[in-house]
Simulated assay, not measured.
Amino acid sequence: MSDRESGGSSRAKGAARARASFGAFVRKPAASAAAASIAPGAESEAALTHVESAETWPDDAVEVGAIVDAYGLKGWVKVAAHADAGHGGDALLSAKRWWLMKGRERKSAAVLQSKPHSDSIVAHLGDSADRDAALALRGCRVHVRRSDFPSLGADEYYWVDLLGLDVVNEAGVALGQVVDMIDNGAHSVLRIEYPATAKDGRAVKGERLIPFVGVYVKTVDRAARQIVVDWEADY
């Protein structure tokens, strides 16, 4: 994930809205880890690999992993996901088309089959018929349309949906904007930047780190692009 969706395997529970669950990616039911595949008879058109350009690249494409190797002899690839297969890696498993970028080259490919394998995800992409074809895809960064992400339950969020949101405290004081998310192993942490002034008068960026747990995070309003927290400006 690059850090667009990186980390993201923790799941923390807080007090907001009765045992709210916060995290970059949330473990889905076991069924989501099963191999996904294109319906029989749909391969002829869907299997095609399409050359893409900046103009045809989806506006909601999110980087979720990278192809690191071939898998087996029949054209399968191995993907290092930016989140575990049981967490945000589900986006790779649910999408029927991946958008691939390598240098300036852009293309998209139908996902004929995909499944978790150890700590990675393996997949058979359209028009990848043998190991040589799979090896040629090494180094491609894999993107998935945000609209293809699995749906989440109440009070569950993908990190990518939190980036750019304004953060205010319960008194309405602006604390800054979410620029990154951090996984400290126990829970997710909001990294917030805000305008500040250095001792010499220069405009600089200040930073706040707020644990993304219910005791501090009170509401997340994606429509209003705002997060309300129990946090003082001088903390």
Rank of each mutant, 00 (worst) to 15 (best):
A85V: 09
I67G: 02
A66I: 15
I67E: 00
S94V: 09
A80N: 04
L92C: 08
A95T: 13
I67Y: 00
A85Y: 00
A81S: 15
W76Q: 15
D90G: 14
Y71M: 01
K96D: 08
D84I: 01
L93P: 05
I67S: 01
D84N: 10
K74G: 12
G88R: 09
G89Q: 01
K96L: 03
D90E: 14
G88Y: 05
L93C: 08
A83S: 14
A70M: 00
G75F: 10
A83W: 15
L92M: 10
D84T: 09
D90P: 01
D69P: 01
V77N: 04
G88H: 08
G89F: 07
H87T: 06
L93S: 05
G88P: 05
K78D: 14
A95R: 07
L92V: 05
D90R: 09
V79A: 11
A91I: 04
L92F: 06
A83N: 12
K74S: 14
V68W: 01
A81W: 11
L73I: 12
K96P: 07
L93Y: 05
G89D: 01
W76I: 07
A66E: 08
A81V: 10
A83E: 09
A91Y: 04
V77K: 06
L93F: 03
K78Y: 01
Y71Q: 04
W76T: 10
G75Q: 10
L92A: 06
A70H: 13
G75H: 06
V77H: 02
H82Y: 15
G88F: 08
A80L: 07
L73D: 13
A66R: 08
D90T: 11
G75V: 09
S94A: 10
W76P: 02
G72W: 02
A70L: 04
